[in-house]
């Protein structure tokens, strides 16, 4: 898939299988309120969701071990470190205003240039480093890391030649448009999944709560009402700012990152 000399970590089949399994687990860990069938084991205990929150880091670690195994050299590690630092540095800019999200556009652009595996790891390390720098390691962090990782992965899997810039002006425009559209979809999905992950904890009585064993129809309408009532503004703001930032900074940042990706190929003979 990639030339051995590029700094993109190779995305081997074992890593791909591990990431696919992690995605399947993550879907249950976040969307269990919708998927749990009446009479299932999850609807009868209260400890299941806590268990998911504790198991999610284990699953992420396994996926990272499989991805990193043999596929990462010093260039990828150093590049990851620097880009994670940039992610951690721009994250506080988004914390002040409602829904302004300044992290995703970087993860999406880096995932596009350096590939799906790199995007996945960058989503994890970037948010982890930012949480460590600000002392904000909360119960939401595993979910955020996990979701950001898949945002980066998806950006790397978008069609088109990732490492090389499109030749024509139209191609470049199309690429930015595609990334911006992906950003909107990813931001909205991110908001909905994060809502899902803490919805059963945030509110336990009233009309908007999760009904254990209520089934998909009952709980989906309640979830949508809850999202509408609480976070739709934030989600739309996140989608709009991410797409806007990609449209504004994408052309320059893609060029900068591609230049680095080209320059990083200095050991093609040694491998």
């Amino acid at each position: 898939m990639t030339a051995p000399s590029s700094p993109r970590p190779a995305f081997r089949w074992r890593g791909a299988v591990a990431v696919a399994l992690a995605a399947a687990f993550g879907l249950v860990a976040t969307a269990w309120p919708l998927l749990a069938a009446p009479g299932g084991a999850l609807t009868e205990t209260t400890s299941g969701p806590w268990l998911f929150a504790l198991l999610l880091p284990v699953v992420t670690a396994v996926a990272l071990v499989q991805l990193a195994e043999g596929g990462m050299d010093a260039r990828a590690v150093a590049m990851l470190g620097v880009l994670s630092a940039v992610v951690a540095a721009v994250r506080p800019f988004g914390a002040g205003a409602a829904g302004v999200e300044t992290v995703f556009f970087l993860i999406i652009l880096a995932g596009r240039v350096f590939g799906p595996g790199f995007g996945f790891i960058l989503g994890n390390t970037g948010l982890f480093a930012s949480a460590l720098l600000t002392g904000g390691v909360g119960p939401w962090m595993p979910y955020q890391m996990f979701a950001a990782a898949f945002v980066g992965l998806g950006a790397g899997l978008l069609p088109g030649p990732n490492a090389a810039a499109p030749e024509t002006r139209r191609g470049r425009f199309g690429e930015i448009a595609m990334l911006a559209a992906y950003a909107v979809v990813a931001s909205l999905a991110f908001g909905l999944l994060l809502n899902l992950s803490f919805w059963p904890f945030a509110i336990t009585q009233g009309n908007l709560t999760y009904v254990p064993g209520g089934g998909l129809g009952e709980n989906l309408s309640r979830l949508l009402a809850y999202s509408l009532a609480t976070s739709l503004g934030w989600d739309l703001g996140r989608a709009a700012t991410t797409a806007l930032l990609i449209a504004l900074t994408g052309p320059i940042l893609l060029r900068v990152m591609r230049r680095t990706a080209r320059r990083a190929r200095w050991t093609s003979a040694a491998e």
Partner: peptide, 19 residues
């Protein structure tokens, strides 16, 4: 086993002030 990833985070923590 997560050595590479943790090194990347350590690099990030040291690079952020340099930024």
């Amino acid at each position: 086993a997560l050595y590479e990833v943790s090194v990347a985070v350590v690099v990030a923590l040291s690079v952020a002030p340099q930024l």
